[in-house]
Design a protein around this nucleic acid. Structure first.
Lengths: 192, 192, 192, 192
DNA sequence: CATGAATGAGCCTTCATTCAT
DNA sequence: AATGAATGAAGGCTCATTCAT
């Protein structure tokens, strides 16, 4: 643990703030710390103490999602087939990004406020490197696409799915899968 | 001409406002009408008279780009090969979107404030339909991707290229071309 | 005539402005010289030349009403019965004020911008003095109420009728008559 | 207490804002929340927190006056004589309206923003109904005038007194009393 | 004389952040 | 540590009036 242990009431507040933040994000509301405070029935300053900036809260909300992606990527590496490993992971990643609105902004920004976020993103980058590297080694993926393209491409797919006029989140997820399918098809090196 | 002819001084102000708006947009600043007024050394109300909302200015800035795309799409239709027609047009479109920051937001929003913008977007949509339709008919493009996916995909590619950390606009354009290449590769139906 | 003779086109503009102003006032819109200009399809400066301030236009609009009241008051003086003279005139005056929204503000303000308005108000004041004076002389009106109270009382009645929630102008007029009746009843000195 | 207890500093600010608002209203200035803030040496948002709209402040300023009128009306009902009860109350009401410039606008508008204001006005309306009802029952008041006329008439008298050119507030109050006297005289049904 | 574009003060309102309690 | 009131910069917009054409 990098965080100091919290007093019981502080921990309860932290919890409530995070829950409210999640609810707001899911509802599409941009995070306003004042809002969060009011909704969580907590003083503004309390929110500010726990999360000095909106980004800090955002990244905290994104953390579980990032961690899941990390373990998902690690699991993917245990798949012996480099191609299915990459493919399945990317589908999982896109699904996560469509489902959890905090991931895209955290991925899209080059600089993060929480060290933990930076660390997770770096670990992910490393895992992407391995996934891509194995695929390159197996000559199943276009060598022009590198580790550094994974995040942009995922963000692009999520963005595209949001631009497509869709009634609900299910439709958006389906659209995103469709777009990812195209990209995977384009990435794959075909054996003649 | 659909626009009423402006008086000389009014035209000069219009010009200055548009130029300032362009400069701001290119610099990545969100358009604020007060800002624009100050920078253009023009009264606020003058800006408001010409452009009642920030969107009106944005769409005005986007108009030349949209018109170019329209004629580019029309030209593409004169290419006999459905595939190269589509491909070349999409490269041109992506280039435009990377180069001109007003296009993405105008494409991404479902509703526009200037009738002319709506008209241009509709004409473009029609042309996309033809381009895609010809490609489908020639069985060179995945039937799962339709006219309605063109704009989202283009916006997604532009977004992805912006997420990719790039020093300058040239690099971003190159990245976007790379991503578009992948997508085109994925779209193309391959003859066995 | 105190006004210089206008050129034909100027006269036509003057006419249109006044008509538009009347329409706006009747519609309950506060007079905005820009509005007037646009609605009258006339330049703002044209309006400003004819009517340097909103008040000038307002008073111009009020002029016919004031003149009518003057002649109405003069006519009243030819009624031999001081009481019915006063009473009938006040009913006419109240009706005018309810019907023509320009009168109340012109009456209510102590200072006017058009000399003609001042003159008309003074003539009216003189006539009120005569009407009231005759009534006092005939001992049919409470001596505590003087010439200087006529305008305030009329304005008060009109205001009261506007406060009373009324669907339409007819109802407001009826209410105003009801209130005026009460006041006349209160004014009249009753022979024991 | 219906209001939540305020923190000491908040209460002090509330107080200052109300005092400044009162001073402005008494001076005839229309209430502008920015003005109030500046004059009270308080942040704009502080004013907005306490009073979301100018009307909210106006009604708050009017509250004590309304409450006094309510209790005055209740007291009037303990007077056994329906006529003197009504008369004395109306004199008190007019005096309040002349003295406190917030009352007329609050009375004159059909819709209020503070529930408390609405409640007070409704209580007053009920009391008016009783006062008038008793007078009607005793045949001392013209049946054509009903409860719904009280507020308009009072507002009308106050307005009339303000139209009458008066040096100071004392004179205006005297004028208002004079006008009310006329109206009461007109209302009273005279035994033959 | 006529036009209508331009002006900019001024009002309203929101929000991220600080600070007294 | 928690609270939530206070702050004030900042942005949006309108409108009476002036001035170039």
């Amino acid at each position: 643990m990098t965080t100091a242990p919290l007093r019981k009431d502080a921990a309860r507040n932290w919890q409530r703030i995070v829950e409210v933040g999640r609810r707001l994000v899911d509802g599409g509301t941009p995070i306003q710390l004042n809002d969060v405070a009011r909704t969580a029935s907590v003083g503004v300053a309390t929110v500010y103490r726990h999360f000095p900036t909106p980004e800090a809260l955002l990244e905290t909300l994104a953390t579980p999602g990032l961690e899941t992606l990390v373990s998902r990527a690690e699991r993917a590496l245990s798949d012996d087939d480099p191609w299915t490993a990459l493919r399945d992971f990317l589908f999982a990643a896109i699904h996560a990004q469509i489902t959890d609105a905090t991931l895209s902004p955290v991925f899209a920004t080059p600089v993060n406020v929480l060290p933990h976020t930076t660390e997770l993103k770096q670990r992910l980058a490393g895992l992407f490197g391995q996934l891509i590297g194995r695929a390159h080694a197996a000559s199943t993926v276009d060598p022009a696409i590198t580790q550094a393209d994974i995040v942009p491409l995922m963000c692009g797919v999520a963005f595209a799915a949001n631009v497509h006029p869709a009634a609900n989140i299910e439709d958006r997820a389906a659209t995103a899968r469709r777009y990812l399918t195209v990209i995977l098809e384009g990435l794959r090196t075909r054996e003649q």
